[in-house]
């Protein structure tokens, strides 16, 4: 069973969280090329290994979290509050900017 170390609620069963997939920052719809927009919609790295993902603690603090997780072992390296920038569907002009953790400290697994 995977447990996510929520920075606000402590380690909780993964069933409490909703998964939103790899961290993908929405390009500016006005200036993004067709290819860039398509990549944002459909293409993900889908790696076997470590991946940065957006999760939502729906049955807890209802905060957006950025989680580093291994897709082969289920191991969780970090789980930090993603703040406003982790929320999916937010327009962001900085294409490649990772979500800046705005919450408290990183909690070790």
């Amino acid at each position: 069973m995977i447990r996510l170390p929520c920075p606000w609620c402590g380690a909780r069963n993964v069933d409490e969280f909703a998964w939103h997939g790899e961290v993908a920052v929405r390009p500016d719809p006005a200036s993004a090329t067709r290819e860039r927009w398509r990549a944002y919609l459909y293409l993900r790295d889908n790696p076997f290994g470590w991946v940065r993902e957006t999760w939502y603690h729906r049955m807890g603090c209802e905060r957006w979290l950025v989680v580093e997780r291994h897709t082969g072992t289920g191991e969780v390296r970090t789980c930090v509050d993603g703040g406003e920038r982790a929320r999916p569907r937010r327009t962001d002009r900085a294409d490649d900017g990772p979500a800046t953790p705005a919450g408290p400290r990183e909690v070790p697994t």
Partner: peptide
């Protein structure tokens, strides 16, 4: 399962 994974292990949940 409701998240991406390459794990082929069953879970109690």
């Amino acid at each position: 399962d409701p998240f991406a994974s390459y794990s082929m292990r069953g879970s109690l949940g």
